[in-house]
Nucleic acid binder design. Structure first.
Lengths: 333, 333
DNA sequence: CTGAAAGCGCTAACAC
DNA sequence: GTGTTAGCGCTTTCAG
């Protein structure tokens, strides 16, 4: 089903079909009518690939991501809701991820799609600072905050402080931290917030209570196993994201520790799964859908030649559920 | 950044660059080395668009959907997890949806991407039976069960029976149903299951207790408003999906009805949001991620020329949470 | 108003 | 081993 088939069936040239399909002027209405009829009958639809190779605009917004995890899909929901009715198509692309290309996928994806297929891109959690590209770009939860494209994130440092403070206020003093992906700024900021809150409460920072979780449940499980089998094990864990928190919960369960009686856990993100975990996870909520919506608004502004802020930060918020409680042995005065 | 730039910089022809980049034989290793160096330096990446126009295979799996809603994203998670390491890239595409193209988007998307950009497609909840297409297709939660591509769904009818039976066993007799999208087979089957269970319990089917919800919260809200302001209002509602159930919950709240004391609600799907609703929603769980995973397995089989089942049905399962309880005034014996 | 022709970036025959 | 050439399906001048 190509434009040539249509042209042949309608008895006109491909050029004419192209004009009709794209609503260009300079075609007799009788001809246009006949062509449209054939188009409808044959079910012809212009090929995105071929037209994007020739055209400068495609009205397609690309969303570049490393995989469809709960964090990414939550942002996608916001993007999708905001984009509806705006005349853009959405194309979420996840390149083939393997170990040797785990870093730098966003640059690869961008050059693979950019320039022709998509008019602009929203990149979710880029691992490296995104290079100046041929198309406008918005980065969500970016690598570094300066120099690159406009970025959107939430108040990571204050969120982490609030999480840690919550545990301190419950009476915890041995608070572990399962760190995020150290190549992301958000992970660094969350660790910083954790240390800030500790310091503000006069609790000494203990590097032995911090482990890498890489924002992934699998890694967090290893981290948690080390942490929770420590001679003087922590009574609370602040995990850098909800997925890590789930990993910690799993290990706690395995070890026979009750949550929250024996171990308190706080996550970060507030993905929908957090609310339905057992017990329901106390966490720091990021307005993920709103972040996605803002990304769309900003990208469309860019596409229309308007200026946008270099950086948008949305507030984070502590959501107390059932995974946190005072420590088993209250610190006697 | 095109292949021509690389060729010029390396002092060779574009054909040679193409051969090197694609690992074809017939290039001196010294030349290959030099080209690779330039490629790395310039950060060149072959354009998906251009190569797909020329090539027959792209190693890209397309996922065609109407929008990134919780149902679709849950399946995407399963697809993504299953596809990792299999050498395929994922491209989730949502065309610009508007009112006049709400039906038939899958055919349009398929012809827009098919043939060149993607090797095969997974279509989520197609509104019409998918035509024979140029590429292999798997449909999830399809329109009709026969004639078209291979399909995947869950046991909708038994799920709906279980949902209704659960309400009946709690003592409800006035059970309303908020119907799904009537263009989808799953919606029809769920209504059938509802009627089956009613009949099995000797409860007369009352058409006045059934309303269209279109699988959408917004529509379900209208439906619920009618249902819950009925003179002899139902004491329980079976909503065709979780999103509709949320709509019903919202109206109940608005009307001052307590859930589950005054009104019991059962949903369908068990999206992550169901577990974190207040109260937590009793629902029929579909193995959404597994359905996505199976879709990938089957599509890859098709791409490799193997045969696959025409239809895969996975079990559904009642998950009792806090939104269901016996009716306010027990039916006195 | 219509069609012929060029060319988007790339790959695959085929010459050299 | 390497380069030249012909298209993939489409849009866009530019003649007719």
């Amino acid at each position: 089903m190509t434009i040539t088939d249509v042209a042949r069936a309608a008895g006109v040239s491909v050029a004419t079909v192209s004009k009709v399909v794209n609503g260009r002027y300079g075609v007799a209405s009788s001809t246009a009518e006949r062509v449209l009829e054939v188009v409808a009958q044959l079910g012809y639809e212009t090929s995105l690939v071929a037209s994007s190779l020739r055209r400068s605009r495609t009205n397609v917004i690309g969303i570049l991501l490393a995989g469809f995890d709960p964090f990414a899909t939550e942002i996608l929901k916001g993007i999708s809701a905001e984009a509806v009715g705006k005349g853009y198509e959405l194309l979420a692309y996840s390149g083939a991820i393997s170990d040797d290309n785990a870093v730098g996928w966003e640059r690869r994806s961008l050059s693979r799609l950019g320039g022709t297929l998509i008019d602009g891109a929203i990149i979710l959690t880029p691992t490296v600072s995104v290079p100046t590209s041929s198309v406008p770009v918005i980065a969500v939860d970016p690598h570094t905050g300066s120099g690159g494209p406009s970025t959107i994130d939430c108040d990571n440092i204050e969120g982490a402080r609030a999480a840690t403070r919550h545990l301190i206020e419950l009476g915890h003093t041995r608070i572990a931290h399962v760190r995020g992906r150290t190549d992301l700024e958000s992970a660094l900021l969350r660790e910083q917030g954790y240390r800030d809150a500790l310091e503000a409460a006069g609790i000494a920072y203990d590097p032995g209570l911090v482990r890498d979780g890489g924002y992934r449940a699998a890694w967090a499980i290893d981290a948690a196993r080390e942490l929770l089998t420590l001679p003087d094990r922590p009574t609370a864990v602040f995990a850098a994201n909800d997925l890590s928190a789930f990993g910690v919960m799993e290990v706690a369960h395995e070890l026979g520790l009750r949550i929250p009686q024996d171990l308190s856990i706080v996550g970060f993100d507030d993905i929908p799964e957090a609310g339905s975990a057992t017990p329901r996870l106390t966490t720091i909520a990021q307005p993920l859908q709103e972040m996605g919506a803002r990304a769309v608004t900003m990208l469309i502004a860019l596409l229309e030649g308007r200026e946008v802020e270099a950086h948008v930060q949305l507030p984070s918020r502590l959501v107390v559920r059932r995974s946190t409680a005072p420590p088993p042995e209250p610190n006697a005065p």
